[in-house]
Nucleic acid binder design. Sequence first.
DNA 1: TACGCCTGATTAAACGATTAATCAAACGCA
DNA 2: TGCGTTTGATTAATCGTTTAATCAGGCGTA
Lengths: 347, 347
Amino acid sequence: MAQLRPGPNLSRIATSLGVSVATVSNALSGKGRVSEQLVGKIREHAAELGYVPSQAGRALRTGRSGVLGLVLPDIANPLFPKIAQAIEFAAASAGYGVLIADSRGDVSAQTEAINRLVERGVDGMVIVPRRATRISAASCPVAVIDTASTPGNTVAADHWQGGQLIAAHLADLGHKRILIIGNNPESNVQNDRVGGIRSGLCPGMSAETLWIEKLEHQAGSGCPLGLARKVEEGFSAFAALSDLQALRVLTELQRDGIDVPAEASVTGFDDLIWSAVVTPALTTVKMDMDAIAEIAVSALLNSINTGRTREGTLVTAENDRVPMQLIIRQSSGPAKPVQENLQMENS
Amino acid sequence: MAQLRPGPNLSRIATSLGVSVATVSNALSGKGRVSEQLVGKIREHAAELGYVPSQAGRALRTGRSGVLGLVLPDIANPLFPKIAQAIEFAAASAGYGVLIADSRGDVSAQTEAINRLVERGVDGMVIVPRRATRISAASCPVAVIDTASTPGNTVAADHWQGGQLIAAHLADLGHKRILIIGNNPESNVQNDRVGGIRSGLCPGMSAETLWIEKLEHQAGSGCPLGLARKVEEGFSAFAALSDLQALRVLTELQRDGIDVPAEASVTGFDDLIWSAVVTPALTTVKMDMDAIAEIAVSALLNSINTGRTREGTLVTAENDRVPMQLIIRQSSGPAKPVQENLQMENS
DNA sequence: TACGCCTGATTAAACGATTAATCAAACGCA
DNA sequence: TGCGTTTGATTAATCGTTTAATCAGGCGTA
């Protein structure tokens, strides 16, 4: 059972060169006092032997695993690829690994997932919380990526400002009546986006909000949103709070023979993978995931290295909101002349 | 710097109960010879102290980290959430953690990502290879999830059979001329799907294939696919090789005023997150990711436990192809009467 | 010459778990 | 009573790395 490790270890290098393990360790880490030439010789020899340090040995000695946990409780969240990719990149750049834990949407499973990570000895973790979940303190530093209005949030896209970008864009195009389409008013992210849009409206503009989950609760999952009638009522722009919903809006409008963007504009959020390939390509607002991940990870590492790792602390970052970027594509265009809308409205 | 671990360790439990560490270890693992009552007492005491074993210590001694690696080289693959979720679930059920490594699409970065995982001491890894990549042998067991026609593949959805499901469905609906729409003919997965569709055609049916990347190479990224003309030419069904492409097809058809499914049917593959919410909801073929992950992980664990972990072996599974499942939604419907198609074709 | 100091290396003690080897006591049986 | 066996526990070695403590020279200076 006792399979020997394939690769060489410090002691093998040491005996092979006739020096002590400590010297090899010092030479490789550059920490102790080793002569220039010996350092060179050791490094060279280690390289040609293909030495890779044992994380287990190191972890045991230093009490640090070199691994961060990533908790993504929202089942099959389409943002997952981007988040995971960005976090993994930021972590890998800092020499850390990323252990994932998905709780499959189950609420209680979030704590369970967190515990699994703790048991595996992660040095810290990044949590993208399920809507309005309170993070039960884990025994390691925790960075939360949600939105600025979430208490304890570490860093996130500036969803509010993103909403304002949408509002300004629609104002530029001359839209007056806007229908905001979201999934669930419990979500801090969606609420901030709504707030941003509303706060960015120019005089003469108005907005209403349609919550899909509420509608589906009555009419059943996947029900039509009745957007054609909204167009008749005078709404010329549909601002979805996520590209997923924007896609639903876009296809429903098209299905009902409404031309986008000639008769109605559609915008989304997040710039998900498909947003560029649909016809018309979706105007959307994108978050700078790389920047967010970078900030979250470095805040985490900072907390880890300053040694306040004992308590389950929610770490904070100086720059806690990262600006979003408007991406204008073909799904948004000038509003139809005002008279026509009013006429429709009156009919 | 020497922060003591917060939780208790074996020795603390041992001294606290006045027994030896070995006894505690044996009692908790149920391996050595410990009396019933002492086992009970130790377990109880360990539980109330909130003991969690140190993975580092265990890993160092046993030479096993209890962690599997997951390599997903295809940048921002929309299947990622499902795969990661399924693998993580299967691994967690077996008491393993999952370390992710994304190579951001870079070709050489795949080996680099694999090396990172090896350095972290994973016991094995699951690789979803970038198209037609050969896996450079890593120093641990490797399970490959691609498609049955890939040499060395461990387990995958039966893409060929999935194609046949699509063909049979379209045949049932009376479609005669089918346009298969894929991204890239280099992909083993896509090729198997095409093969399946073609092999499942009934007499009197024909199919052509359109590769998007080839088209975009000439006409630019995001160019129209010219599907309206294909409808005029008599194609009544568009079988995309992935939902992502199906979405592109669907929206382009709708944009051009072609009613789906009345005038043309659209089908996809993979049942991605948005497939159910677009209008009309997408008929697609779904892979049983949970089953695939379960098979991949258990093959991996099997190889790990039988001790042939020395070599970088591609593990094999008995059941290497998992059937796909047809999900019929609203984007596919009966073909228009044959005469009309012929008429169009002749014009 | 002798003392102190710097340099460059070694020694040895951890970290926390697993496990083979050992040992003491109790028990069965002749 | 004496011997072998079983039971229940302990001892001690080990995994690979880090790091504080120690040590042997060499060199400058008093």
